[in-house]
Nucleic acid binder design. Structure first.
Length: 464
RNA sequence: UCCUCCUUAGCUCAGUCGGUAGAGCACGCGGCUGUUAACCGCGUUGUCGUUGGUUCGAGCCCAACAGGGGGAGCCA
């Protein structure tokens, strides 16, 4: 069967006018009268569908077709008819309709609006709805845009391991990976589990970050990035956290925090521009039904330079704002969600990098600034979503790094290869982590992370 | 993990003072020569989240549990 795609018709309507083609797709809506009926058909090739007109005179199985339920898969052979002035620029006059797979009256999706909560329970069908069809096409395009961005700039794509033998990645609670019999694991004399008998001969977990391994490859290729799934067993129950999510972690050698911010901002702009040109139908849909300021916001952002503010200035701005916060703002405290939101939504009204945080509230590997009080860290806060990027210039000085680890009570033996990087031709370097789902949320206006990942894994939920 | 709200038909919801279940959509039948969340007429659909309690009587009041939403912490 030579199958045509609705997407191609949209991009070249004049050429298709009057031509007979064959489409395969799923019925989104169907209505009929005595002599003719209409089917809204979506074939998955693009956001929009096509209206199929079927007439009793032409279609042999007219009554069977008219009885079809929403969700049915059909193959339509018909003639493209341009219909300027109508709600749709063209439609398909059916000559033949074959039923591939009928649906049933209790098909869970109606042509009425559903709540996202209900559709979450129907996760295996939700890509057939307008909202999720748009979200997941954007997700695919953004993944592509990220790969092209880094590839065009000479970055090497590195696959860091998902199963990690280092239990000290330091970014959160981990999921254990084991092949031992959980009902009767081998024990040491003191009653603890003997991990030396496990599959890898040691205790292993799912990765919470590929950063440390990424740094090792940056010390060979100069510019690298990772893009893969990450797992955190945190008991966090919010619209912005998932136990399994995707992360992009670039790492650049011979670079400082400013280089890092420039890279991050170029990447954000690249992604936005890509989506603005490739996903116009989807963005228009989000703009109408999810967030009326979306297009304006993204278009403005694609033009603008990045904004940065030091942690110290940010604290001052918040204190001087006169706004009432549930948690008071003091230098040395981590910024609360309410503070972050106020900064990005009220004071700057756009994404903003907050840099140079107090060392006490950041990780051991972040580079100590000359003031000996702050580290070269950066968080990118965006309106509506919060933090989407967290990064830093890394501590390349062996003595400063080990002193810092000692202060924090970290065992150097656990990080032997990471520390050795500083002995074998280390250089200043920097990198960051971008939460893939979070940028999809920002680009679509969708406010729950469960609705931008196909089968979300969250606390207490791993359906499908 | 904490705070808070919600759970009634397949879906979205209403349900008064505690007095025995209701609308729209979907679905079925009929009608309709251009609909587009089609429309018009008729009709079908209930373990009121679960368990227990109070009461002559509970969708409604109380308790526990389950599921979901929003917020917080942690982060991406």
């Amino acid at each position: 069967m030579k199958r045509e795609y609705i997407k191609n018709i949209y991009s070249n309507m004049e050429n298709f006018g009057g031509k007979e083609i064959t489409l395969g797709g799923w019925i989104r809506s169907i209505r009929d009268s005595k002599a003719f009926g209409f089917i809204d058909l979506n074939d998955g090739s693009c956001f929009k569908g096509v209206q199929v007109v079927f007439e009793r005179e032409k279609i042999k199985n007219y009554d069977d077709i008219a009885k079809l339920n929403i969700g049915s898969a059909i193959i339509v052979k018909g003639t493209v008819e341009l219909t300027p002035g109508m709600q749709q620029p063209f439609e398909l006059k059916a000559n033949e309709i074959a039923v591939e797979g009928a649906s049933t009256p209790d098909y869970p999706l109606q042509k009425k609006r559903h709540t996202v909560e209900y559709l979450r329970e129907q996760a295996y069908l939700r890509p057939r709805t307008n909202l999720f069809s748009a979200v997941f096409r954007v997700r695919s395009e953004v993944a592509y845009a990220i790969h092209t961005f880094f590839n065009e700039r000479g970055f090497v794509y590195v696959h860091t391991p998902l199963i990690t033998g280092s239990d000290c990645e330091g970014a959160g609670e981990m999921f254990r990976v084991t092949a031992l019999n959980v009902n009767n694991p081998p024990k040491n004399e003191d009653g603890t589990i003997d991990w030396t008998q496990d599959f890898f001969g040691k205790s292993t977990n799912l990765t919470v970050s590929g950063q440390l391994e990424g740094e090792t490859y940056a010390m060979a290729f100069g510019k690298i990035y990772t893009f893969g799934p990450t797992f955190r067993a945190e008991n966090s129950n919010t619209a912005r956290h998932a136990a399994e999510f995707w992360m992009i972690e670039p790492e650049i050698a011979f670079a400082d925090l400013n280089d890092n911010m420039e890279l991050a901002w170029d990447m954000i702009k690249h992604i936005i521009n890509h989506v603005l040109t490739k996903c116009t139908q989807e963005l228009e849909f989000f703009n109408s039904f999810v967030d009326k300021t979306l297009l304006e916001r993204l278009t403005a952002l694609a033009q603008s330079d990045y904004q940065k503010v030091s942690y110290t200035e940010a604290v001052k701005l918040l204190q001087e704002s006169g706004a009432e916060f549930k948690y008071p703002v003091d230098w040395g405290c981590d910024l609360q969600t309410e503070h972050e939101r106020y900064l990005t939504e009220q004071i700057f009204k756009k994404p903003v990098f907050v840099i140079d945080y107090p060392k006490e509230i950041k990780s051991f590997y972040m580079r100590m600034n000359d003031d000996n009080k702050t580290v070269a860290a950066m968080d990118l806060l965006v309106p509506g979503v919060g933090e989407i990027i967290g990064g830093s210039q890394r501590e390349e000085r062996l003595d400063v790094l080990t002193k810092r680890m000692e202060e924090l009570g970290l065992n150097e033996n656990d990080y032997w290869w990471y520390i050795n990087l500083r002995r074998f031709g280390g250089t200043k370097h920097a990198g960051y982590g971008l939460g893939f789902e979070r940028i999809i949320m920002y680009l679509t206006g969708v406010s729950n992370i469960r609705d931008v990942i196909p089968y979300p894994r969250t606390v207490g939920n791993a359906e499908y």
